[in-house]
Design a protein around this nucleic acid. Sequence first.
RNA 1: GGGCUCAUAGCUCAGUUGGCUAGAGCGUUGCAUUGACAUUGCAAAGGUCCCAGGUUCAAAUCCUGGUGGGCCCACCA
Length: 753
Amino acid sequence: MDKTYDPTLAEDNIYRMWEKGGYFTPKMPDKKALPAGRRAFSILLPLPNANDPMHMGHAMFVIQDIMIRYHRMLGDPTLWLPGGDHAGIETQFVFEKKLAKSGKSRFDFDRETLYRMIESFVEENKNINRNQMKRLGFSLDWTRYHYSLEPEIISIVLTTFRNMHADGLIYRDERLVNYCTKCGTSFSDLEIKHVEQIDPLYYMKYGPFVLATVRPETKFGDTAVAVHPKDKRYLRWVDKEIEVEGLIGKFTVKVIADSAIDPKFGTGVAKVTPAHDMTDFEIGKRHNLAIKQVIGFDGRLADAAGPYAGLKVKAAREKVATDLQTRGLIDHIDNNYTHTVGICYKCNTVLEPLPIPQWYVKTKPLAKPAIAAVKEGKTKIVPLKRFEKLYFRWLENITDWNISRQIVWGPRIPAWYCLDCNPTIRLTFLDKQGNKINGLYKDLQDRYSFEEIAKGLQNLMAPISATYTLYSRSCKTCRGSHVVQETDTFDTWFLSSQWPVTTLQVDNKKDFSYFYPTSVLDTMWDILFFWVARMMMMGLYKTGEVPFEAVHIHSRVVDAHGQKMSKSRGNVMDPIALVEKFGADALRFALVFGAAPGGDIAISEDKVRGMRNFANKLWNMARFIEMNIQTSQKFNFFENKNFESLQNNEEKQIINDLNKLTAHVTKCLDTYRFSDAAQALYDFAWHRVADVYLEKNKERFKMNEDQSLTVLLHVFHRILKLLHPFMPFITEELWNALPRKYDKPLIISSWPS
RNA sequence: GGGCUCAUAGCUCAGUUGGCUAGAGCGUUGCAUUGACAUUGCAAAGGUCCCAGGUUCAAAUCCUGGUGGGCCCACCA
C-alpha cells in the first residue's frame, strides 16, 4: 500500500466493479419470503434537469445513497431509481439564451423546428450529470433510468389528464394570469417572485374624484370606479354614472361599491381595470363589468390606447403621467410609495396580469386527502414539525393550478380545436416565406391553406367558448379534419408530480406493486410545494395510496460564510472539482458532517480537506494493520461473536465501545440523524481507535500475536462496514486490501448488529 | 400585512423529550516527530450559550417581552 490514499485511482475501478456486479439492481424475492423485519426499501432520486450539470444541491443526494446503502446491507430489497427531467421552461430558457447569442429568438421558428432543436440540445447534455452522479458513488439502479419525455411516460401522464378531465378536475377558464411578456408565457402562482420597490403614486383627477394609482397607463381599460360600501364620503355617488376626462376624450363609467376597497388607502376611491389587475378582475366579476384589455401579450399598449398604442408599459406610464400633468389632471404625486410587485423568476421582468384562457387543475378535492394522509401519519414529514406546518398551510389555502405554459418544450395539452367550428381562434404562424402572420382563423382562411397554417404554427389562442375534443384528430361535430392541437404545453410539474407512479409503472407493473409507496422522499424545502405536495395529491389521486411513507428534508448547501451559493454572488462550488481534488468520500463526508436536517450546511474547501485527511487516516490504519500481518497468517475471525472470553482489559473495552458505536450508528440511521452517525464514526475511528487503542497497544501488535490482531481486524472491519454508506469508495478499497472472512464486496456485506 | 425560523468559541455550526465540568470541524499558539499517517501526534488559548424578566431543585435547552438576522406566504389600487 502507498503512503497516502489516492482516491482518483481507486474510485473509478470500484464504481465499475459495483456496476458490473449488478449490486445496484435489487433482487425482488416474494415479499412473503423476506426474513422477519425486512421489507422493500425504495427512494426515487429527485430528478435533476436533464441538461444541467451537477451542482452542490445534487451532491446532497448523498443522504439518499447513505440510506440506500444502509438498507442494502440490512438485506432489504433496495431500489434507488434515477431519472432526468425535461424541465420545460427552465430548459427552454437556457436554450433561448443560447439562441440569443447567435442573434435568433424562439419566434424565428415554427414549433416543430424549435422543439427538435431543444431536443437535440438536451440529448447532448443528458449524460453529463449521470456520469457526475457516478463520480460521487451514487448507487443508483441505472438499468431503471427514466427520462420525463419518454413516450411511455407521457402516455401515462396524458391518461391522468384524461381521467382528471372526466372527473371534472380539469377545466379551461379565462382569468388574469401572471404573464411574462419577455418569456412569453404565463406562470402558476407558485412561480411568482415578489419584490419590494418604490414607484410614484399618482393622485389623479377622475371626474368628481381624486384617486390614487401607480398605473395611470391602464386608465384606458377602466370600466368602473369603486368605493367602499360604507364610506360616507362617497355614498351619494354609488350607482351613478360619472363623466371622466381622459387623454383620448371623455368617457363615462359607473361608480360601484365593493368591500375590497380600503377606505384608508389613498382617497378611498379606486379606478377599476378588470383586465390588468387581480383585485379589479375579482371586483369586475362581482359587478359584471366589461373586461377591456389595453395591454397586449407583447407588453405594449393596444390600439384601444389611441396614440399611446405600441408603447411599452413603462414608457406609456411615463408619457401618460406627463400628459395628464400638462392637462392639469394630476392632483399630486407621492414619490415615496413602497409596494411589492410580482416579477418573473427567470428574467426578473415585472409580470403583467393579463386575461388569457388557460387550463386549470381543480386542487381543493386533491388537497384534502393529501392533508389527511399526513395528519394520519401515512406520510411522515421529517425531521421538523415546521415543515408540516408549511405543508398544511399551503394545501389548506391552495388555489387552482394553472398548468398551461406558452412554450414548446414539453408535451402539448391533448386537446384539439376544430377551426371550422371555432373560426375566432387566434393563430400565430410563419408562412411559407417565413413571415410571421397573426390573426383570427376566419380572417386568414381565404389566404392560407390549413396545411400551411398547421405547418408553421407557433401559437394559438382559443376563446374560452371554443369547443375541443380530447385525443381526436377529427372534429366530432362537423367531422372535418381542420383540427389543431392546443399549443399550450404542460407545466413541467404536472409531469413530475406523477413521477412516483410513472417511473414504477412504465416498465412493468411489478415494480409498482413491489416498491410503491416508496419509503423515503429526500429533498430540500424549496420544492416542498412545487413537487412534494403535488406528488402527494397526484399520487393519492392516481393510486389511492401515498407516494412515499416519509419525506426527509435535507440541508441546503451554503458557502463557508453561510451564504447561499449563486452565480451572481460568485460563490458557487463545483462538486466534481472537489471530488477530483479530495476524493468523493471526502466530499460526501463533508456534506453530512455537521449538517442539521432542514437547516444549512456550510461547505468550504478547508472542510473537505479535513475530511480527506480522515480518509487518509483510515488508509494508514489499514497500512499499519497490514504491516503487522504476515501473509501466511491464518486468522480466527470473530465476526459476529461476542468476544466474551477476552481476558485483556484493553480488548474487552474496545469491543465494548465498538458494540456501543454499532448500536448508536444504527439508531442514528434509522432516525435520519446522519450527522450524528458520521461524527460518532469519525470520533471513534480517529480518536478512540487510532489515537488511543493503536498507540497503547503498538508493542503487542508488533509481536504479531494472533489474538490481538484478530481483535484489531474485527474492530477495523466493523468500522469499514459502519462507514461504508458514508464513504463507500475507501471502505470498499480497504475491505479488499485486508484479509477477511467473506469474499464478497463490502457493498453487499451484512450490516452488523 | 400574515407566518415560520435563527441568535452557542476567530469562522461555519452541533447540542434528540431541561441534568453541561457547553462540544465538533476549520483556524490560532507552543512542543514533538527519520518509527501507519506532516493529509501526523501531544498540549494550549479561546464562550456573561443576543438582552431583560419568569417557571424549576436544576435552563444554552421551557414561557413572556425586546433587539438583530434569514426565509416563506400575500390580488391593497
